[in-house]
């Protein structure tokens, strides 16, 4: 378990880091928490020539409020996110999702920016990013751009990020009033990754109907996705067990589920429905509990 030789950089500022990734482009990998990259390198499934360790760029590890947005720096660890009062208040879904990632050791090292950049199809965060309509901010030497979560995840471990870009922060909009959210996940028993994970946000109107619902699904397909068909079924309706069950049935419609030794495509599809319904039930209960 020894990686192939590589050149290591540990820039102390974002500008230095950006210069390095611009210079080395495709041949450089960013090291943020290392929970995916280091094992891949040790197995020599990843053989980058340059490793740019951004762990010393302190400014990237922060959680703050900015103009009504919750802003989470890329180097915030999963533990930072799950234990942050501000996150629990402004985006409890994210805190709950973070608490479901890996194990304590992984949560203490792994970072939100690293996870999103790596974009494992079974990672937990992407489902919440989608359900929360998050914005992902990428910096390069030519400036920054903001990518909506729904456009960020392109394909298997492939995102909108271009060589030379660094994901610097994630911005979460304020939730509508009378909102509730939940993340429910079927764990792959060996790795703890999601075989099917559903992150749900529902918002109620004054009469208790569902004003809007957002459902992010991970683990099921090569990339995370929004269950827009199910969301449409829910919008404007009075919640009922039948409605939730019917909508949940649809969450994986139109996607081609992954299949491996842990779960067939059919089982992933079925588990996605069950876990989406359970997440919806929990989210609704929380929304109904909100005084708004």
């Amino acid at each position: 378990m020894i990686p192939a030789a590589f050149e290591y950089f540990a820039p102390k500022s974002l500008d230095d880091a950006l210069r390095l990734v611009e210079r080395h482009g495709d041949e450089a990998k960013l090291l943020a928490g290392g929970q995916s990259l280091i094992p891949l390198m040790k197995l020599r499934l990843s053989v980058p020539r340059y490793v740019v360790d951004i762990g010393r760029i302190r400014s990237l590890r922060s959680i703050r409020e900015e103009g009504g947005w919750l802003v989470i720096g890329a180097l915030s660890t999963h533990h930072d996110v799950e234990s942050s009062e501000m996150v629990r208040l402004m985006a409890p879904l994210l805190a709950e999702t973070a608490s479901e990632i890996g194990d304590v050791q992984v949560r203490n090292r792994g970072t939100i920016g690293g996870s999103l950049s790596h974009s494992d199809p079974a990672a937990d965060y992407p489902a919440a990013m989608l359900a929360l309509d998050a914005q992902i901010v990428a910096a390069s030497s030519s400036g920054t751009r903001t990518i909506h979560a729904s456009e960020f995840f392109l394909d298997l471990m492939t995102t909108q990020l271009r060589p030379g870009e660094i994901l610097t922060e994630v911005r979460i909009p304020r939730l509508p009033e009378r909102s509730g959210s939940a993340y429910r996940k079927l764990h792959q028993p060996a790795s703890g990754f999601a075989l099917a994970g559903a992150a749900v946000r529902v918002s109620l109107d004054e009469v208790g109907k569902i004003a809007s619902a957002a459902i992010g699904i991970t683990g099921v397909a090569v990339r995370p996705f929004r269950a827009s068909g199910a969301e449409a079924m829910l919008a404007g309706k009075k919640p009922s067990p039948k409605l939730l069950a019917d909508a949940s049935e649809k969450v994986a419609d139109g996607v081609e589920p992954l299949a491996d030794i842990h779960a067939s495509a059919a089982y992933r599809r079925a588990a996605a429905s069950v876990y989406a319904r359970r997440a919806l039930e929990a989210a609704l209960a929380r929304a109904e509990g909100e005084k708004g």
Binding site: Q188, P189, A190, S191, I261, H262
Partner: peptide, 19 residues
């Protein structure tokens, strides 16, 4: 211990072999 029909061990690590 899952082997495929070509004798490849598919549960080759603790990431896939659950204890």
């Amino acid at each position: 211990a899952v082997y495929d029909d070509q004798g490849q061990l598919l549960t080759g690590e603790l990431m896939d072999y659950a204890i």
